[in-house]
Design a protein around this nucleic acid. Structure first.
Lengths: 141, 141
DNA sequence: TGAAATTATTTCGAATTCGAAATATAATTG
DNA sequence: CAATTATATTTCGAATTCGAAATAATTTCA
């Protein structure tokens, strides 16, 4: 191919999907960044700020802000690591876990409903292609 | 499938790609939104603000800001339509066109270099899958 | 060991993005 | 044709995001 249509399409798909997520999590008073952090902690139990930054796609300076808001909302706790005092460990509070127990299954169901317009094979191929694109874009620095 | 890995992968691919574009266009003192508008006008000659909003993925309130900056930088002109005085027509100025003549071929080459990690067939399949996902996400409102 | 380099995180100010309400014009319709 | 509704765009204030510099702690290695 010799045009950039694929990029346009990728951006559109991303945008619509992000909009769907945004609408979904807004019901719980969260934005997409906040939900991403909660989701990571929901699956990983405990993570350092660094660990979260690597998982969720947000620069460190923005992450401080997101984390601060989540602490203020009472959904996560932030405790300085004893081993390495530069590092802070994050986990869900009781409230945070209860929220995610309630919200995540619904969220997952809604998102799967979208992804299920693809059959298993298509979805697998999509993943592979996207991983390739992602890697190729990184080398581009 | 029964997980949301595809979404994670899609978001990562989008982010890396957007970063690559950001780095590319920053060399010309543009951000991604601005470049998107210039690109649309480069291919379409003339578009109304509404027309651009539909092409580029930016809400109207943000678009006003983006357009204002491009007018200030001298890359586009904005003229009230005579037919419909609610509407404003945008096009590239001489400077804007010269910039794009210089920048776009390079940009395209860089982006194609990334997309070319896929063969023609893979890219076509990727497009189809992404279009499906995009549509499915919209219905989700 | 102790200076230099590295890593984790925050702070700061500026840029961008957003949604909702406002404005202005055009189209509809009763 | 006047009142209502719809469309295009901007304004506003707030929220979010960003990059760069600052801070603080750890590691390296001469």
């Amino acid at each position: 191919m010799n045009n950039l249509k694929t990029i346009t399409i990728l951006f559109r798909a991303h945008n619509s999907l992000e909009k769907a997520i945004k609408d979904d999590v807004l019901k719980y008073g969260l934005n997409v960044s906040e939900f991403g952090v909660l989701e990571a902690l929901y699956h990983k139990q405990t993570l350092s700020v660094k660990g979260i930054i690597d998982k969720v796609l947000v620069p460190n300076s923005s992450m401080s802000y997101v984390i601060e808001n989540l602490v203020n909302k009472g959904y996560i706790s932030k405790i300085q690591s004893l081993k390495d005092k530069r590092s802070f460990m994050l986990e869900l509070t009781k409230d945070g876990r209860e929220l995610m127990d309630k919200v995540f299954p619904l969220h997952k169901k809604n998102m799967r409903a979208i992804l299920d317009v693809l059959d298993e094979n298509e979805e697998a191929i999509l993943q592979k292609a996207l991983v390739k694109i992602g890697k190729a874009s990184l080398n581009n620095n």
